[in-house]
Amino acid sequence: MNALLAADVNVAQNVGFYVIAAVMLYGAVRVVSTRNVVHAALWLVVVLGGVAAQYVLAAAEFVAISQVMVYIGAVMVLFLFGIMLTRATIGSEDGLNNRGWGLGIPVALLLAGTMIWVVVDQYRGTVLESPEGPMPTTALSDVFLREGLVPFLALSFVLLAAAIGAIVLARKD
């Protein structure tokens, strides 16, 4: 698969990509395979951070910052609280997996194979041009406040509903 040997493009960028991707994939494997819930959460931080780094490589600075703030800042804290409040064992424990967990392997392999096949088939040789600079935030705001306004408003309601719903669900009475 010489598509991955991107010789005719920015070498530093490529090296960065492969290193980060390797870390991310290792982290993701650990998330779904470790026997320790807290470790899984910490590995998830690695993966999410890697995603943010990839965004920076792809010139999506704003999304990367949002990723760091929302995921690593807020979502991870929520996860850790969730783990603590449900009194999961802090050390490693057996029985984190289902009895039928083996079924996941063929499904995941099948899924990965299909998607990679399709993607390679469709985009083999497509080169992403190195952007001149990061995507300006004004361009994003233009989209948000023009075509994307209605989904934006709808999303605001979703967040409001989620906030209220979370309170209602988690309330003690």
Binding site: M24, V32, N98, V119, Y123, L128
Partner: peptide, 26 residues
């Protein structure tokens, strides 16, 4: 940089996530 790099990374992450959803008990 080739487009497939990102897309294959996405596909692998996705499949790992699916595996986690299926396999995890917690």
């Amino acid at each position: 940089m080739y487009a497939v790099n990102f897309l294959i990374l996405g596909a692998l992450l996705f499949s790992l996530g699916v595996f986690g959803v299926i396999a995890r008990r917690n």
